[in-house]
Design a protein around this nucleic acid. Structure first.
Length: 428
RNA sequence: GGAGAGAUGACCGAGCGGCUGAAGGUGCACGAUUGGAAAUCGUGUGUAGGGUUUAUAGCUCUACCGAGGGUUCGAAUCCCUCUCUCUCCGCCA
């Protein structure tokens, strides 16, 4: 993979103002003026080296001809020896410049879609729509950790004994509730929405992490096995999207829809002190992810359907939620646009993000080199990739426990989950 | 973990210092044949970067035979390192 493609050179060069704006709006810091300078230098070095290589190719053929007819070629050989050294120098210079350019491009984020509101952080996100009513209790609703510990279905002290703070342990009906949700989600996506279920590796190498855009920016947010150069995946998006890395997909295979349950590992290093109680923000959690590979012209429609595929789960579960469009400052490095689904949870009295649905357009496809051929004669083109959670588990569990809690501390099981819980209607 | 074999274009597979951007086949596209199809025959068919250009057209140059480095006037071919795959042995859920 010597030639990793981020945003491509030409595009950045020709759309420098657009890229600069994206960098500023996403609050990244990338020196794009330096890019222009280096890019120019690169082209110059390349032209010089190419000219010399051309000469070498021509003369080498001549040497071969002379030798075959038993003629002397020694002055041509010594001339080419010098040319070879010159080429080596130019190539080395160019490689140095390439490395600097790539470093800049590696840190250049995807360009937000024009419809994305410019804003500094989550306070500038825009609520698109809301669904369902927040439950009305005639008692004081409790947070999930109180309910969970009293019912004996969550054990936070055991989890921290085993691994440390920020880890969770569920048991009995609590563990089963999560498993029920997982099955409900996967069954719905595979049976109703046309996704193929995958179970991928949950460790991934550097290249995969780069492909989906976690590297280089999020290096410190991930768990890394130094000795093996592997990362624990922070999301299922990483292994699933990388299934087709470095492939040219035949057009009749598109669109491809995958869904997968994976654990997600996050160091949450910048988040200490936030949501420390309970299971709203933890180092390891399960998530069912949906990933799509589509033709570019379809990706906006596919995004709408992706969001709908996640929303239907919340509707079926009867969890009140809102759909939020992220502003530029809250949008991920790789995203062109992103809708978050946030459920209202009565105990913590907050909206909790349970899904993020993004269109990456061709950004991940470039980095991971995932292409398709629109027709047999056409040049390969980058696909568009999308992904969204459907859904993140611990927070959905929170929503159910807190919104379905009863005054006596028991918890009702939403109807669609009951078959997955062996008919259980109430957790007590 | 030990021993061996291998990695070549969309795919399969030859080549093992110059005449190879790469034989042959499959697939695909176009054409011929057919009432239509199959079969057959013919032609074509890689990717990326630079230059030129209104152009992702054309022309031209360069690079690419797992990745990185080296030897050489010249490397798919020789040498070194790494990664991955397969076979056998050992070990283990």
């Amino acid at each position: 993979m010597e030639d990793l493609i981020m945003l491509d050179h030409k595009f950045v060069r020709k759309n420098i103002e657009l890229v600069k704006k994206a960098v500023a709006d996403k609050k990244e810091s990338v020196n794009l003026d330096n890019f222009l300078k280096l890019e120019q230098e690169r082209r110059l070095l390349l032209a010089q080296a190419d000219a010399l290589k051309h000469e070498r190719n021509v003369v080498s053929k001549e040497i071969s001809r002379l030798k075959r007819s038993k003629q002397d070629a020694s002055d041509k050989i010594s001339e080419m020896k010098r040319t070879g050294e010159k080429i080596k120098e130019l190539d080395m210079d160019r490689r140095r410049v390439d490395e600097e350019i790539d470093e800049i491009l590696r840190w250049t984020p995807n360009i937000p879609h024009e419809s994305v509101p410019v804003g500094k952080d989550e306070s500038d996100n825009v609520v698109i729509r809301e669904w369902g009513d927040k439950p009305n209790f005639d008692f004081q609703p409790k947070p999930h950790w109180e309910i969970g510990e009293r019912l004996g279905i969550m054990d936070f002290s055991a989890a921290s004994k085993i691994a440390g703070s920020g880890f969770i342990l569920t048991k009995g009906a609590g563990a089963r509730l999560e498993r029920a949700l997982i099955n409900f989600f996967l069954d719905t996506h595979t049976a109703d929405h046309g996704y193929t279920e995958i179970y991928p590796p949950c460790l991934a190498n550097e290249q995969s992490m780069f492909g989906t855009g976690q590297l280089p920016k999020l290096k410190d947010d991930m768990y890394c096995l130094e000795g093996d150069k592997l990362f624990l995946i922070p999301t299922g998006e990483t292994p699933i999207t990388n299934i087709h890395r470095d492939e040219i997909l035949s057009v009749d295979r598109l669109p491809i829809f995958y869904t997968a349950l994976t654990p997600c590992f996050r160091r949450e290093s910048g988040a200490s002190g936030k949501d420390t109680r309970g299971m709203a923000r933890v180092h390891q959690f399960n998530k069912v992810e949906m990933v799509k590979f589509v033709r570019p012209e379809n990706s906006w429609d596919e995004l709408e359907r992706l969001v709908a595929n996640a929303e239907i789960l919340l509707k079926k579960l009867g969890l009140p939620y809102r759909v939020v469009k992220l502003c530029t400052g809250d949008l991920s490095f790789a995203g062109a646009i992103c809708f978050d689904l946030e459920i209202w949870s009565s105990g913590v009295k907050r909206y909790l993000e349970v899904s993020s649905c993004s269109n990456f357009v061709d950004f991940q496809a470039r980095r991971a080199n995932i292409r398709f051929r629109p027709n047999p004669k056409a040049k390969p083109q980058f696909v568009h990739t999308l992904n969204g959670s459907g859904l993140a588990l611990p927070r959905t569990v929170i929503g159910i426990i807190e919104n379905y809690q009863l005054e006596d501390g028991r918890v009702a099981v939403p109807e669609p989950l009951q078959p997955y819980m062996g008919g259980l209607k109430i957790i007590e």
